[in-house]
Amino acid sequence: MNILQTASHRLLAAIANLLAEKGIASAQEVAHRIALTDAASPAQGARMVARAWLDPDYRALMLSDGTKAAEAEGIPMRGLPPLGVLEDTADVHHLVVCTLCSCYPRAVLGYPPFWFKSAAYRARAVRDPRGLLAEWGTVIPDTMRLRVVDSTADYRWMVLPQRPARTDGWDADRLAAIVREGDMIGVTFPAG
């Protein structure tokens, strides 16, 4: 039998059975993890960002321990890679890429956008990041330094963007509603 020609659902069933037989993961545990993965969405990360914009203590927690900050928002992080949070300021902008594969802060943002795994994004993010961002309409001012964070190993990274002007007095829900997926990996700025 050629494993490359075997129907994928049969391979999946075989692996699931082996995991269960060897006591590594039961069918229930696998189903639970799939449900958590499917439930994750950028709305979770956006809640964290909005709270950090309003609450200095939460902001400090988020920057020092992203995993704890996510858990404080009720996001399940057990057994997942540690979350690091990159703070944008008036002087520094961050962009997240995984040049080796597709590491992405799925626990807090859900599935990555399709282009995040593309060879073009991965290559250009490290070689010509300002040119790449300009194609999104994200023009990084000359006065701002750009830090491209390549997720090569054990951490997953998200960006805490700057709070837009003209949002004074907004509550957490209203702030969270303007934070998009791209804002939290640095390809766009929150619109405000």
């Binding site: 300002r130 750009l146 830090r147 390549d150 090569t152 190993a153």
Partner: peptide
């Protein structure tokens, strides 16, 4: 230093990478 790696880019820009 990002420009030093590629021989192009803007001075001051950086690549930050996890390495063992």
């Amino acid at each position: 230093d990002q420009p030093a790696i590629w021989g192009e880019g803007r001075a001051g820009d950086a690549l930050v990478i996890e390495l063992a």
